[in-house]
Nucleic acid binder design. Structure first.
Length: 834
RNA sequence: UGGGCUGUAGCUCAGCGGGAGAGCAUCCGCUUCACACGCGGAGGGUCGUUGGUUCAAUCCCAAUCAGCCCAACCA
C-alpha cells in the first residue's frame, strides 16, 4: 500500500479505513481465549452526539482495541436508547411545528411517528459513531425497545411482581404538568430562585407560606410540640384566609420552630412534608390543583396555579402581614424545566432496599471496582438511603406496563404472556395499564438483555458479566447503580467488574455546553476540521481529569500537528526504500537507546491502559514519538542513512512498527494507515498483536552524555546567534564524537584559539568563535550570578548538620558532587571574565 | 446541612517529599535535502493563603479563602 498523501490529511483515508474494517468483519469477537466485553452506553435517539459521547466512544474504543490486540475475545456492543420522555418531547415539538398535538394523532399514530423519528435519528447517530472510529460489532446492534428487550423487560417486571418487590399505590410523587406524567426523584433538578415568603394571617396567628394559592387545600395548621405556644394552641382552630374554612391546630415534630413564624399550614395534597404530616395525623388530603396545574377549587378555579397565586396576593392583601424575599429551591422537570407539582397519584413502585444491599456489598467487597475510587462514597450514600423507585410514566413512548385491570373485580393481572381475561375472577374483561415504564427500567437490563437474556444464549455465557462499564459520572445513580441492582437480582452476578467514570466535557470557560448558550462544540465539526485521531488523542489526554474537562480546540490543533509529525516520520522512512531484517545484536548507541526507550514506553503504556490512566499512555506516546524518535533519533538516522545504515534502517522499521501498535488504540486511523505502508503485508493493524516489550530492552543509559553535550552546543549557538550553517570548532569532550559533530554542527579540533567556554555537567566545553566582547561579558556575568546563587544554596544545605546526618547518604554525596561542579563552573567563568 | 472535586507559567493541564514541567500563546534565530502542521534557542511561576509534621513540603496533616458539582432541606 502507498501512503495517501504528502502530509497528514485525514479526510483522505479515515472513512475508507473504517469501511475496510467493517466490511471485513473486523469488529466481531473472535478466538476462544478469555473474553472482554463492554456495552456501549446507548445514546438517546433524541438527537445528535455531543462531546460527552465522543469521550465515551474514545475511552471505550481504546480499551476495546487494546484488549483485542492482546488476543482476547473482545465484544463491544452498540445500541441506542428509546429515551422515553426525552424523545416524546422532541416528537411533540416537531408536531407542534405542524400545529398538532400528540392527542390530535392519537396514541397509535403518535407511537408510529416516534418510531419514524427513531429510525432517522438512530441511523444518524450510528453514522457518527462510525466516524469516531468506534470498533463496535454492528451485527449485534440493539435498541432498548427491540423485541428481545421487550421480552427482558416483561420477564423482569413479572419476576419483581412475583417476588413482592413491585407495588402499585397512591403516593405523593413529582408531577410534571407539561409532560403530564409522574417522575422519579432522580428526574427532578433543583433550581435556585428568589421567591417570596408570604406571612398570612390565620385569625391572629401568622403562618408563612410560599404557596398562598394552596390555602384552599389547607387541612390544619401545625406547630412543633416543644414550641412554648403549643400548649395553648393545639386543639383550637383558626380561619384560613381567602377561603374562610376553619382548620384545627395540631402538633408535629417536623415543623421547624425557627422557620417563618414557626407555624406551618398543612396541605397534604400539595406538599411532601404536609403529606407526611397528613398521613401521621390521618388527615384528609384535599386536592385543589389538577394534573394540568389548574386550580379546581375556590374563586380561581380554572386558573393556572401561578396566576392564582398572583391574584390571591392582590385580592387578599389585607390578610398578608408582610412579605419576605428569600432564595428557595424549586424542583423542575429534568427534561422540560417546568416547575414540578407534588401530587398524589396512583403509580407503580419498586421496593429498592433489598435490591440495594447486594449492590452495596459487591463494591464494598471489591468484587466490583469503581474508578476513580472517590466515587465509592457517593455510590454507597445513595444506595444506603435509597427511596422506592416510581417506575410508571403517563407517557405513550416506552415499554407498556404488563399489568391488566379487571373491570369486574378490579384486581390486577401481571403476566409473561398477554392475558385475555382476568386471572382472579376468570371472567371479567380486562384492560392493560395505559402507562409505560421509566426509560431507565430497560436501560438497567442493558448488560445482559443485549446478550439475549432471559434466554440462555452462547453470547450470554461468553460475555456476561461484562468487563468494564464506562460512562459519565452524572448517570451513576440513574443507570450504573440500577444496572448493579437489577443485574444482581436477575442473574445473581454483578453485571461488570469495573466501573470507570469519566468527567463532563465543558467549553473552554468551564461552562456546561448547551444549545441555549450556543457554546456547543460538535465533535463532527472538530473531526471535519482536524480529523478523528487528533480529537481522540485530545480526549484521551484529558481523561484523567476529575469532574470537568475544559475542551480547548488549540489542544486538538496541537495534536493534529503531532499526527502530521508521525506522518512525515514514516514518509522519511519510506524515502529509503529498503527492507532490512533486525540483526541479532544492536551495536550503535542511538539505536540501543531508542530501543531501550521503546521497551520502557511499552511497559508504561501497557500499565496505563490497564489502570484506565489513558492520559498517561497518551502523554508517554507523545513524548516518545515526537521528542525521542523524531527530534533525536531521526536526526541521527540522517547521518547513518548516508553511510551504510543497515542496522539503523532495521531499527527504524522495528520501532515504527511497534510504536504504531502501541498508539493504535488511541489513534486507530492514522496508525492503521501508516502501519500498512511500512511494508507489504496482509491483515489489519487492529488485529496485530500488542507489543510485550521484552525484545531489545537495552539499558537506556550511555547516550545521555551525548545528548547533554549537544544540548549545550545548541544553547551556545542560540545565545551567540551563530547560524546553523556556520561550523564551530570545539575541543573534544566525552560522548560519541561523530554524533556530537553531526547534531551540533561542530568539528572537534585538538586546540582552539581564543576559546569561549561553557560548563555543563562537570565538563568544560571550549569553542572557537569570534564573539562580540560586550555581549559576551554580559552573558558571562549572568551565568556567573546564576552559578553563584546555585552554589550558595547547595553549600547552605551541606552546612546544615541535620541534613548531613539524616538525609540519605546517596543524596548527600550527590549534593557534594554538585557543589564541586558549581565551584568549578564559577571558577571557570571568573577566569574567563578576567 | 452533608459529601465530593478544583486552585501550579498569559491560556489548557501534567507532576505530588529532595531546589518546578508540557502543549498553545509570546520573543529571538533558521527555506538544516521527513515535516513551517517544522527546526533550534529564550523569557515567564513566593505551585490560593496561614499554621503544623519533617533534616527537607508544591507534594503529607490541619485550618482558611475562592470556584465548581452532587445530595438533603426546600412551610
Amino acid at each position: 500500500m502507498k501512503i495517501a498523501s504528502k502530509s497528514y490529511q485525514p479526510e483522505l483515508f479515515e472513512e475508507a479505513t473504517y469501511r475496510a474494517w467493517e466490511q471485513s468483519g473486523a469488529f466481531a469477537p473472535s478466538g476462544d481465549s478469555k473474553s472482554f466485553a463492554i456495552m456501549l452506553p446507548p445514546p438517546n435517539v433524541t438527537g445528535v452526539l455531543h462531546m460527552g459521547h465522543a469521550l465515551t466512544l474514545t475511552l471505550e474504543d481504546v480499551l476495546v482495541r487494546w484488549h483485542r490486540m492482546c488476543g482476547e475475545k473482545t465484544l463491544w456492543l452498540p445500541g441506542t436508547d428509546h429515551a422515553g420522555i426525552a424523545t416524546q418531547i422532541q416528537v411533540e415539538k416537531a408536531l407542534a411545528k405542524e400545529k398538532k398535538s400528540r392527542h390530535d394523532l392519537g396514541r397509535e399514530a403518535f407511537i408510529e411517528r416516534t418510531w419514524q423519528w427513531k429510525e432517522e435519528h438512530g441511523k444518524a447517530i450510528c453514522a457518527q459513531l462510525r466516524r469516531l472510529g468506534a470498533s463496535l460489532d454492528w451485527s449485534r446492534e440493539r435498541f432498548t425497545m427491540d423485541e428481545s428487550m421487550q421480552l427482558a423487560v416483561r420477564e423482569t417486571f413479572v419476576r419483581l411482581y412475583e417476588d413482592g418487590l413491585l407495588y402499585r399505590g397512591e403516593r405523593m410523587i413529582h408531577w410534571c404538568t407539561r409532560c403530564q406524567t409522574a417522575l422519579s426523584d432522580l428526574e427532578v433538578v433543583s433550581e435556585s430562585v428568589t421567591g417570596s415568603l408570604w406571612h398570612l394571617k390565620y385569625d391572629d396567628l401568622i403562618v408563612a407560606t410560599t404557596r398562598p394559592e394552596t390555602v384552599f387545600g389547607d387541612i390544619a395548621v401545625a406547630i412543633h410540640p416543644d414550641d412554648p405556644r403549643a400548649q395553648d394552641l393545639v386543639g383550637k382552630s383558626v380561619t384560613v384566609p381567602g377561603s374562610g374554612h376553619k382548620v384545627p391546630i395540631i402538633a408535629d415534630t417536623s415543623v421547624d420552630p425557627l422557620f417563618g413564624s414557626g407555624l406551618l399550614k398543612v396541605t397534604p395534597a400539595h406538599d411532601f412534608t404536609d403529606y407526611e404530616i397528613g398521613t401521621r395525623h390521618q388527615l384528609k388530603a384535599v386536592s385543589v390543583i389538577n394534573a394540568k396545574g389548574l386550580m379546581t377549587v375556590g374563586p380561581y378555579t380554572g386558573m393556572r396555579a401561578l396566576d392564582a397565586r398572583k391574584q390571591f396576593i392582590q385580592d387578599f392583601a389585607g390578610s398578608i402581614e408582610r412579605t419576605e424575599e428569600r432564595i428557595q429551591n424549586i424542583g423542575c422537570c429534568q427534561r422540560c424545566q417546568t416547575v414540578l407539582e407534588p401530587r398524589i397519584s396512583l403509580q407503580w413502585f419498586i421496593k429498592m432496599e433489598s435490591l440495594a444491599q447486594p449492590a452495596i456489598a459487591a463494591v464494598r467487597s471489591g468484587a466490583v471496582r469503581i474508578s476513580p475510587s472517590n466515587w465509592d462514597k457517593t455510590y454507597f450514600d445513595w444506595l444506603e438511603s435509597i427511596q422506592d423507585w416510581c417506575i410508571s410514566r403517563q407517557l405513550w413512548w416506552g415499554h407498556r406496563i404488563p399489568a391488566w385491570m379487571c373491570q369486574d373485580c378490579h384486581q390486577i393481572t401481571v403476566a409473561r404472556v398477554d392475558p385475555s381475561r382476568c386471572s382472579h375472577c376468570q371472567g371479567g374483561a380486562i384492560q392493560q395499564d395505559s402507562d409505560v415504564l421509566d426509560t431507565w427500567f430497560s436501560s438497567a437490563l442493558w448488560p445482559f438483555a443485549t446478550l439475549g437474556w432471559p434466554e440462555k444464549t452462547s453470547d450470554f455465557d461468553a460475555f456476561y458479566p461484562n468487563a468494564v462499564l464506562e460512562t459519565g459520572f452524572d448517570i451513576l445513580f440513574f443507570w450504573v447503580a440500577r444496572m448493579m441492582m437489577m443485574g444482581m437480582y436477575l442473574t445473581g452476578k454483578a453485571p461488570f467488574t469495573d466501573i470507570y467514570l469519566h468527567a463532563m466535557v465543558r467549553d473552554e470557560k468551564g461552562e456546561k455546553m448547551s444549545k441555549s448558550k450556543g457554546n456547543v462544540i460538535d465533535p463532527l465539526d472538530v473531526i471535519d476540521q482536524f480529523g478523528t485521531d487528533p480529537l481522540r488523542f485530545t480526549l484521551a489526554m484529558m481523561a484523567g481529569q476529575g469532574r470537568d474537562i475544559k475542551l480547548s480546540l488549540s489542544r486538538v490543533e496541537g495534536y493534529r500537528a503531532f499526527c502530521n509529525k508521525l506522518w512525515n516520520a514514516v514518509q522519511f522512512f519510506l524515502l529509503q526504500d529498503r527492507l532490512e531484517a533486525m540483526p541479532e545484536e544492536i551495536r550503535l548507541p542511538e539505536n540501543r537507546w531508542i530501543l531501550g526507550s521503546l521497551a520502557r514506553l511499552t511497559e508504561q503504556v501497557t500499565q496505563a491502559y490497564g489502570d484506565f490512566a489513558l492520559q498517561d499512555a497518551a502523554q508517554a506516546l507523545y513524548t516518545f514519538g515526537w521528542h525521542e524518535l523524531c527530534d533525536w533519533w531521526i536526526e541521527i538516522a540522517k547521518l547513518r542513512f548516508k553511510q551504510d545504515g543497515q542496522e539503523s534502517y532495521a531499527t527504524m522499521r522495528y520501532v515504527l512498527d511497534q510504536y504504531m501498535r502501541l498508539l493504535h488504540p488511541i489513534m486507530p486511523f492514522l496508525t492503521e494507515h501508516l502501519w500498512g505502508v511500512l511494508e507489504p503485508r496482509e491483515g489489519f493493524l487492529m488485529h496485530a498483536s500488542f507489543p510485550v516489550g521484552r525484545h531489545y530492552a537495552y539499558p537506556e543509559k550511555g547516550f545521555e552524555q551525548t545528548k547533554l553535550v549537544v544540548d549545550a552546543i545548541r544553547t551556545f549557538r542560540g545565545e551567540h546567534k551563530i547560524l546553523p550553517k556556520v561550523e564551530i570548532l570545539m575541543e573534544p569532550v566525552p560522548g560519541h564524537k561523530e554524533l556530537i559533530e553531526h547534531l551540533g554542527r561542530v568539528r572537534f579540533v585538538d586546540a582552539t584559539k581564543d576559546p569561549r567556554s561553557m560548563h555543563v555537567a562537570g565538563l568544560e566545553l571550549r569553542f572557537e568563535y569570534q564573539a562580540d566582547k560586550e555581549a559576551e561579558r554580559l552573558r558571562l556575568t549572568k551565568a556567573l550570578e546564576k552559578a553563584q546563587a546555585d552554589l550558595q544554596f547547595v553549600e547552605r544545605k551541606l552546612q546544615d548538620e541535620a541534613f548531613c546526618a539524616k538525609a540519605p547518604p546517596a543524596l548527600v554525596a550527590k549534593e557534594i558532587a554538585r557543589a564541586n561542579d558549581l565551584r568549578r563552573v564559577v571558577q571557570g567563568i571568573v577566569e574567563e571574565l578576567e
